[in-house]
């Protein structure tokens, strides 16, 4: 439904060419949740703005249902934009309008009759769970509530596509989850195609069907989320995956940590990385039985993507020194990456 063909965008800053996007090709199927992930400055903001032509691409085509948007007149483009809702990192609500007024805004733009506006706005506020806030001003809302208002506003013109520009980056983890759930719900219930950009793999993992990884204005990898996770080809993609699989070592352990074992500190602290290449055998319990060692899970983050087990575990092993090192070799055999942290 959305197709970007050979899309490029060049900015000029003091006569220096900056290639924000080069030769982007992308297809977003109807009804899917499409994630575009990249570090800051990778060009993802420019890319999503090219979809509704807030930024005009230097070359290439933007097709929505086969219509090339770059060729439209300004008024035709304004009409097409109503088929594409957009939400932003900083919400961009009008401070001079109440919640009701903000959601009514897109309907006022097309001079919808008063009763239609009234009915539609109340329906949407119901959908995002903010009916009781309709007469409040945005300044009195929390970040999550503001984003819900922004979502209701984006849906007011009955769009086919919802563009999300870092929609959860300014929110705390719990609020992020609830907003992502809402987006997924909208995608399923109203069959609205969602395109989102983010720098967090968590977001992609949570709701996306497909993902594209962008770096330096180029798409370096794209495909279904489960494929990318279990079989990332580029290093950057792997980094994004790892960052979402990050576990911290508690200060208590870090303070006690030594690099070589001694009388008092015999327990080995390791990180085991399961990156999808590892088999789904129960390697942990097998190792315990084989080498007669004890273990304790200190911190872990595991996930199932497609059929692959992906994640990282911070563990403490206790037992005979040579048995433990044999166990580590066993893990390596089973394609589990072993990262020795030290002894505690």
């Amino acid at each position: 439904m959305i197709e970007l063909k050979n899309l490029s965008k060049v900015f000029y800053k003091k006569n220096i060419e900056i290639h924000a996007l080069s030769d982007i090709n992308l297809t977003v199927a109807e009804g899917c949740v499409y994630g575009i992930i990249g570090s800051s400055g990778a060009g993802k903001s420019t890319l999503i703005r090219c979809i509704n032509l807030l930024e005009r691409p230097t070359s290439g085509e933007v097709l929505l249902n086969g219509v090339n948007l770059t060729l439209l007149t300004p008024s035709a483009l304004a009409k097409v934009r109503r088929q594409m809702g957009m939400i932003f990192q900083h919400f961009n609500l009008l401070s001079s309008r109440t919640v009701f007024g903000n959601v009514a805004f897109p309907l006022e733009l097309i001079n919808a009759p008063k009763q239609t506006i009234q009915k539609k706005v109340l329906e949407l506020l119901e959908l995002v769970g903010l009916s009781n806030k309709k007469d409040d001003y945005p300044a009195n809302l929390s970040g999550g509530q503001k984003q819900r208002v922004a979502i209701a506003r984006a849906l007011a013109s009955d769009p086919e596509v919802l563009l999300c520009d870092e929609a959860t980056s300014a929110l705390d983890p719990a609020t992020t989850r609830s907003i992502l759930e809402l987006l997924k719900d909208i995608n399923k219930r109203l069959n609205i195609t969602v395109v989102l950009i983010t720098h967090e793999m968590e977001v992609v993992k949570a709701i996306c069907d497909e993902v594209a990884v962008i770096a330096d204005g180029k798409i370096i990898e794209q495909g279904e989320v489960s494929d990318i996770f279990s079989n990332a080809k580029s290093e950057l993609t792997q980094q994004f995956i790892n960052s979402s699989m990050h576990v911290d070592i508690a200060h208590d352990y870090l303070n006690r940590l030594v690099q070589a074992s001694d009388e008092t500190k015999k327990d080995l602290l390791v990180k085991l990385h399961f990156d999808g290449a590892s088999t789904n055998e129960p390697v942990l319990s097998a190792a315990v039985k084989l080498f007669n060692i004890d273990y304790e899970i200190i911190n872990a983050k595991m996930d199932t993507l497609g059929k692959a087990q992906v994640g990282v575990m911070l563990m403490k092993f206790n037992g005979e020194v040579n048995k433990i090192s044999e166990a580590m070799d066993y893990f390596k055999d089973k394609k589990v990456e072993v990262e020795i942290i030290g002894y505690v």
């Binding site: 304004a78 961009n92 733009l109 563009l163």
Partner: peptide
């Protein structure tokens, strides 16, 4: 804030 103008444009405002 420029974002407000951008949001309005994205909603098809003239």
């Amino acid at each position: 804030p420029h974002g407000l103008i951008e949001a309005a444009r994205a909603m098809g405002a003239k």
